[in-house]
Amino acid sequence: MKVGIIGASGYGGLELIRLLHGHPEVEKIDLFTSSEEGTIFSDKYAHLMNIYNEPLHKINLDHLASLDVVFTSTPSGVSSKLLPSLVGKGPKLIDLSGDFRLPEDEYRQWYQKDPAPADALNQSVYGLTEWNREQIKNASIIANPGCYPTAVLLSLLPAIKHSLIDAAGLIIDAKSGVSGAGNKPNQMAHFSEANENLSIYKVNKHQHIPEIEQGFGLFAEKQRPITFSTHLIPMTRGILAASYAPLAEGVTEQQLIDCYQDVYQNEEFVRFNTTASKFSTNQVYGSNYCDLQLHVDPRTNRVTFVSVIDNLVKGAAGQAIQNMNVQFDLDESTGLNVIPLFV
């Protein structure tokens, strides 16, 4: 396969390069830029020295149309203008931004940008792989999920779909490393501001709120408003999402465990664990795994769901490649079967 990456110099793009470089079906990777045409990529990122010494390409629709797959790992508002011109022209289109995840009005409200054209939005498919493979297979555009929604939806969908919790009382608390803010300079991710600090941000205003609510509606047919808080942790990678909800009447912890084991028993990249005494982001660091736990508190009749992912892999590039594998009828683990970096 010949692959193109638009936005290769961002953290998500760099992870696409790292993982696709070891993908046995990928023969060539072309990197595209809107502002640094001709720049030798390994001059910009020394870790790619003698691995990717080619110059960055100018964005050209004919060049892009000649490829098998095009990934867009760009800021919001870019792919919505670029990808519609490539629909039906040949390549599979996988967008890692938020441009194709929401309906027009919600995108405009939460992202404060103009949405993609309606005909392109109508051809896009939400790429939560474990829950939407059949739709992903023939999608014109895959809207790769956001990092927080990936962690939250994988951890809560079984319980919501099977009415094991009272979703009206659901509270979701999530924490992310600073790479989730991207590599453009900003005050919140500045070392002096982030180091030895814990910040809550976008309180009740995070753009992933409607995406999570939409996911509940898509896959559990139960869409309702949620309380969702996000925090910045002074570490590079990782998301830990802890969600709290009352148990539905008569539901036991064993019923929850049986449900999750049944739903995810054949999923290679979702690991449901009931026994690990230590549960942390470094157990998935650098990998495409999402690890899950749940704990029922009999005193309060509430259940705590915990999920951990690497925000740049399962939350971005890894899931995008997993979706590519689905589209090309490859084993989903192709190019992704790597052991996490524990330390």
Rank of each mutant, 00 (worst) to 15 (best):
S80Y: 00
I17M: 00
Y201L: 14
T230N: 11
G22L: 09
I29E: 11
G98D: 05
T72Y: 06
I17L: 08
D291E: 10
I233N: 14
T274H: 07
E104D: 01
K205Y: 09
T274D: 04
N132L: 05
I59Q: 01
E211H: 04
H295E: 15
H162M: 12
D173N: 09
L240M: 10
L56G: 05
V296M: 08
K314W: 00
N144A: 14
E253S: 13
H231E: 14
Q327V: 04
L61T: 12
S42Q: 06
S35K: 13
A242M: 10
K202Q: 12
A181F: 14
I59E: 02
I165F: 09
K58D: 10
N311L: 12
G7C: 14
I233T: 14
L154T: 14
V251C: 01
L198W: 07
V69I: 15
G13F: 02
L56V: 07
V251D: 09
Q254G: 04
G127E: 02
S66V: 01
L102R: 00
I309V: 13
S76Y: 00
L256V: 11
F219W: 08
I233C: 11
K89I: 00
V125S: 06
N288A: 10
G180F: 01
T300W: 04
S76M: 05
I94H: 02
V263H: 02
T236I: 13
P84C: 03
D43V: 11
S192Y: 10
I17K: 01
R299W: 09
Y148P: 02
L128R: 00
I141G: 03
P246Q: 08
N186S: 11
I339H: 14
A242F: 11
F272W: 04
I239D: 03
V69K: 11
E25M: 15
V284M: 12
A120Q: 01
L218S: 06
F71P: 03
H47R: 13
K2P: 12
K92Q: 15
S79D: 07
I40W: 09
G177R: 10
D99L: 08
I233R: 12
L164N: 12
L154P: 06
P91T: 04
S85M: 12
P103Y: 03
S140V: 12
D62S: 13
M235A: 15
